[in-house]
Amino acid sequence: MHELDITRNNHLVDPSLHIWGWQVPVYLFFGGLVAGMMIISGYFLWKGKHKEYNCACFNMPLIGIIALSIGMFALFLDLEYKVHVWRMYATFRITSPMSWGSWILILVYPALFANMLIKVPGFLKTKIPFLEKISEKIRNNDAHIKRIGIINLILGFMLGVYTGILLSAFGARPLWNSSVLSLLFVTSGLSSAAAFVHMIAKDKDESRLLAKADNSFLTIEIVILLFFFIGLLTSSQAHINGAKLLLIGPFAPVFWVFVIGTGIIIPLIMQSLAVRGKINHSPVMPILVIMGGLILRFVIVYAGQYSNWTAAALGK
């Protein structure tokens, strides 16, 4: 028997770390969703696909701005010293993923806004007619549209990757300490975004294309999850313990049922059947994918805080 008793009982730290509640996973989810939307929309613009369809990519920037703002507001609620939020923008720390993220978010908004200007939403057209004039200039120049597409693609990727690196850079939390986490969050963000656009797309071809894309993203997500666990399970005892939290530990039921089961496998099977025309497309599948993406962030954030080095040092 190897036991450790301590007299400390600090708020949010003991008996196990629980500093981040619902706000951080919600922010990570919206960050990933917006990243996915920027990548998909940027790809459409880059490839000139916006000409082919009554493109849902035109709705994405405004939805993205709203979604990201909700996420950032959640993050703001998590700060313990809210009036000091501006301090993040008073410095840049190259070693801090959170610092990178703060500045990436500052760049993401103008990129989304420029994307939105390609087709100004109706309510803005009447309120700010000036925007329509800028929009016309952008629309008349394919090179501008392509540039906006590429910028959205790159910044979307940076945003998605950062949400993963934010956690993976914490060596003290073995479950998070895998660089694969950034790819997992980008892919999950892409699948949530594809599911969302598939749900709102009016054009049937576009909807089908996004359902197909979503199936690919979900398949890649399974492979990345496999890599994530292989990496952890072949590492130190602390990392093995971290992986076990999700695989067979207290977070396993939620992980297997809501992330893997209803979040990936079931929608993947159903959407594959729908793409082949064997069943009708339904909003249930994309909703399950989006819920799976949200629950993935919750389970990773909560289980990661629970994972630690001390248990492994005690031979547990």
Binding site: R8, N10, H11, L12, V13, D14, L17, I19, W20, D78, L79, E80, Y81, K82, H84, V85, R87, M88, S96, M98, F170, G171, A172, R173, Q305, N308, W309, T310
Partner: peptide, 17 residues
């Protein structure tokens, strides 16, 4: 700013808010 990143980063759980 009380973002708590430093608390998550400490393997000793030595920090608090």
């Amino acid at each position: 700013s009380g973002c708590k990143a430093c608390i998550a980063a400490c393997p000793y759980n030595a920090r608090f808010i």
